[in-house]
Write a protein that binds this DNA or RNA. Structure first.
Length: 192
DNA sequence: CAGTGGATGCTCT
DNA sequence: GAGCATCCACTGT
């Protein structure tokens, strides 16, 4: 079942945990989403916090599209834009369990262990071939494909990684027990 | 394993 | 000029 635009036209705080277990493909390459983080407009850690700039336009909508940004001058990171136009909310995809196109991923990443192919936001964009040209693309049309999960996994919750502001907000969601996370969640699901 | 530092490009002050 | 929603290689236990 394809995830349609309506799925994303809600609060990122509802959408983000529901993305865990969905399958993300780009040109047929990808896997199961096992880790995401939520960012909203009133969030000092969000790119949208200071208002729209030329590089953050796609984060301001419409929902159901990609927001891709360059990180630390080197990496690309993929967000799935949520909420409705005018509001800027997005889920950062931080890790996948690789299922489709393993050879293509290994070729792009170099000879890498399966566990390391997509275990980080920069890694998965490299593995899937996502760059600035993917920014603003609709998520329900090629080359993107998003398939809804068929059952609800156990969700781990924790604090977000790599930020310096609003570090206490528990807006990181993971597939509990997955070996493909960018970093483990702390002990029991519920806090991190 | 844990901790550190460099690469690198763009935005904002 | 500072600061990043990162990753990797390298060090030291």
């Amino acid at each position: 079942m394809q995830l349609r635009r309506e799925f994303f036209a809600r609060s990122v705080h509802e959408v983000a945990p529901e993305l865990i277990g969905a399958t993300l493909l780009y040109d047929g390459v990808g896997g199961v989403i096992v880790e995401v983080e939520a960012y909203d407009q009133d969030d000092p850690a969000s790119h949208a916090f200071r208002g729209m700039t030329p590089t953050t336009v796609s984060m301001f909508g419409p929902a159901g599209h990609a927001y891709v940004y360059r990180s630390y001058g080197i990496h690309w990171c993929l967000n799935l834009v949520c909420a409705s136009e005018g509001r800027a909310e997005a889920a950062l995809v931080r890790a996948l369990a690789p299922t489709h196109g393993l050879d293509a991923m290994r070729a792009r990443r170099g000879l890498d262990r399966e566990r390391s192919l997509c275990s980080g936001p920069g890694k998965l964009c490299q593995a899937l071939g996502i760059t600035r040209t993917s920014d603003g693309m609709a998520l329900d049309r090629p080359p993107f494909r998003l398939i809804a999960r068929e059952s609800e996994p156990e969700i781990a919750i924790g604090t977000r990684i790599g930020i310096t502001r609003a570090i206490e907000r528990p807006w990181r969601y993971g597939y509990a027990g997955s070996p493909f996370l960018s970093r483990p969640f702390r002990s029991l699901p519920g806090w991190g």
